[in-house]
Design a protein around this nucleic acid. Sequence first.
RNA 1: GCCGGGGUGUGGUAGCGGCAUCCCUUGGGACUGUGGAUCCCAAGACCUGGGUUCAAUUCCCAGCUCCGGCCCCA
Length: 445
Amino acid sequence: MRIERARGTRDFLPEEMWKRRTMEARMRDIAEKWGYGEIQTPSFERSELFTVKSGEGILKEMYEFRDKGGRHLALRPELTAPVIRMYVNELKMAPKPTKVYYFGNCFRYEEPQKSRYREFWQFGAEIIGSDRPEAQAEIIALAYHILESLGIHIKAELYVGHVGLIREVLRAANVEADKINGVMRLVDKGEREEVIELLRETGAKEDLIDDLISLVDLKVKVKGKDALKEAREREIIVSDSDAAKELEMLLQILDYYGVVYTLNPGIARGLDYYTGMVFEIYETGGRLGAQNQICGGGSYRLATLFGGDDTPSTGFAFGFDRLAELFPQETSDLKRGGVVAVAVVVVPIREKNADSADVVEEAIKIASRLREHIPTYIDVMSRNLSAQLSYANALNASFAVLVGKTEIKEGKVTVRNLETGEQEKIGVEECVKKITKIINHKIIL
RNA sequence: GCCGGGGUGUGGUAGCGGCAUCCCUUGGGACUGUGGAUCCCAAGACCUGGGUUCAAUUCCCAGCUCCGGCCCCA
């Protein structure tokens, strides 16, 4: 019977992998240049790691199971918790700040839809040990530059907020501490009416409610340098507030980095380990359907939850698959139709009723020489000359190198240019040199 | 968990209560030392299960799955 792929998973063919590896390489390169070191954590963890962070509710959205020893395990649904767990377990002694990045697959048991799969990849970075404005700005700038290197920043909108702004208003309104998270969650979801209702129930004064709503609604296009000025004028940033001062400094540094952003205090988080800046990046062209967030990040304190010392951290994570959908497919000469297009095919010519061991031997030697420089195919189907050339044509190969009795006798090979049809008999070394030169020229083009 | 629309060779399609069409893909041959064209041969599919029926790929139901949306989004 035919075995189907598991729901919500995908197969990646060579062409797609080429694209994904290209993206990955660029992202890694930037992270490395910014001084981040790559780490990797296990694909599954003890379930508590995630329930401690996000609550029991996430159990139904995880691939959660018991192993043969009865341990509760879960395929990781995200990478921040594993990274901080790793820090607590084995990186505590590293100099602060500890800067790490990661790229890995994650799993969530959710209904698949456009840009949402049950196995997906995240690329992220964390500064462990700092949540100062400098760290916050660096994290945002790093995310922004990665996006830029992929050519996707022009299709995206970056929103920056600060959970402290809203929390301060709520505290001023004497909202009970245990209700603040509920309000934050509603703010994050954009449920204005429910926010107002909830605040009225707690007996908050109308003018404080108005303050909060106007703060949340500041989703106006106040970008970059102007954001700071505007925010001051509108008294969104009030000088005597800690959160405001921190945000002010953050925005200042973001301008130094040349990041284009929109100030949006309505970005919130309903969990209390978020301590300061929060940011999100959305795709704006509607190409991702309902799932258009491509990046999220912020400052948080998770280490104590996992048994470590209280450690401020700042980080972000990209939804790699969503970036891949936005990344322009390069019409590179290197790949076409999923196979290597710039390539050479070595063709051993077997005579019927004759021992062709010497031909095969010579062909393999030549292929080995060529493989030091360029992708090279050699027959593995005992095909005749005609069929081998037909295959070379189907591959879109550039050259065929023919080796038969005649060539061996003359100490040469026949090099056929498959695009022009021209061919000539030359020595092996000359052939390697010639093909390498032409193909390298092609790759540069 | 909910709502809507789909599942015919690798892919794209036509069709219909009885014979599944074309493009296509793959292998081989015509062509025992030269690819793309042409011709020939071969192989390749009705998502799964149940029901109705003399007969189901077709109609009905359920499931699976894909696509889109809701919820959720750590």
